[in-house]
């Protein structure tokens, strides 16, 4: 076990090279609807139970089913209203269970990235062949269903192995959503490939705000607006990224969805300064225009420590 994963170098927020997003925008904004499938009776992973209660966890399971039947559709209509596209954190198995949801996302030109096969199948304890099989399944299943080549990864239920980031880099993924150290992207130190950390968020993720932090809907809307305002202000110095990760079984609830819509209205009203886009578009721009400047700046400041993540 390592004290420091060495996945990226320390790189202080001040005095970084300036990022200007396409169209002179200051903030790249993206929305990550998590479209997930949780199994009724998942197999036991030795490191973590599939559900907090013994299976079947009826309320937990059926609440997530509600998200798939009702919640995503409310969210899609809301995003349509503001002309926003989602970048879907997808439980790959859902393609087989609920293809109607996938079709609705494809119609809207939404992006898909992998969030594992099921959110009840964790990476803990997988050997390399198993983890590769899961990633190859992800790439092939989305390709077959939608024609899209996935470029992003958020480990199922945020469970990792030491080799996860090296593997996705090798499979030509462009970005990882599993690292929360920054409000700007940063190249990751993988053995091969060209992988970056993409600002996702736990702080304004509805699982955290409605779960761990027990916010009311209007407080969550206020937090989103304030988060956005601060990052937009800082984006004038160097472009920032804000992501709102969502789970329809939480945010789309009847007593919450209107408040969330208010936050989106606030954000959409700043479209002149904000690049409202998808994660792969941010990653594509960053790889081409910002990647080299970042590495040069880290080297220039004497902060490059070499090596790769979890290397012996």
């Amino acid at each position: 076990m390592r004290a420091d994963p060495n996945l990226y170098d320390y790189w202080p927020y001040q005095e970084r090279p300036k990022i200007v997003w396409p169209g002179g925008k200051k903030l790249a904004f993206w929305i990550a609807p998590n479209i997930e499938f949780y199994e009724f009776d998942p197999p036991q992973n030795p490191a973590r139970p599939g559900w907090p209660r013994p299976s079947p966890d009826i309320v937990g399971y059926s609440q997530r089913d509600w998200g798939n039947r009702v919640g995503h559709w409310r969210l899609m209509e809301l995003l349509d209203q503001y002309g926003m596209k989602g970048s879907v954190s997808l439980s790959i198995g859902l393609i087989d269970h609920h293809p109607e949801i996938i079709e609705a996302c494809v119609e809207r030109d939404w992006e898909f990235f992998s969030h594992g096969v099921y959110n009840t199948r964790y990476s803990y304890g997988m050997d390399e062949a198993q983890e590769r099989a899961m990633l190859e399944d992800s790439i092939a299943s989305v390709q077959n269903a939608t024609g899209q080549r996935i470029r992003g990864y958020l480990a199922p239920a945020l469970t990792h192995t030491e080799r996860t980031l090296d593997l996705i880099a090798e499979y030509d993924f462009w970005y990882s959503c599993d690292l929360f150290q920054d409000d700007q992207p940063q190249p990751l130190k993988t053995r091969t490939g060209k992988l970056m950390s993409m600002p996702y968020s736990l702080e304004v993720n509805d699982v955290i705000t409605y779960g761990a932090l027990a916010m009311s809907p209007w407080r969550y809307a206020d937090v989103l607006k304030r988060h956005f305002d601060q990052l937009l202000e800082e984006g004038a110095e160097s472009g920032t990224v804000m992501c709102v990760p969502l789970h329809a079984y939480l945010v789309s609830q009847s007593h919450r969805v209107r408040a969330f819509g208010e936050a989106l209205r606030h954000i959409a009203a700043h479209a002149d300064d904000v690049w409202i886009t998808r994660a792969a578009d941010i990653a594509g721009f960053y790889r081409e225009h910002c990647w080299d400047h970042t590495l040069e700046d880290i080297a220039r400041r004497g902060l490059a420590t070499g090596g790769t993540g979890f290397a012996p």
């Binding site: 390592r2 490191a47 990792h160 599993d178 150290q181």
Partner: peptide, 17 residues
């Protein structure tokens, strides 16, 4: 469980940003 990249990076956020 190890490797808890989630909490490692959320804490690191403080010292970087």
């Amino acid at each position: 469980p190890y490797p808890d990249l989630r909490h490692f990076t959320t804490r690191d956020y403080g010292n970087r940003v």
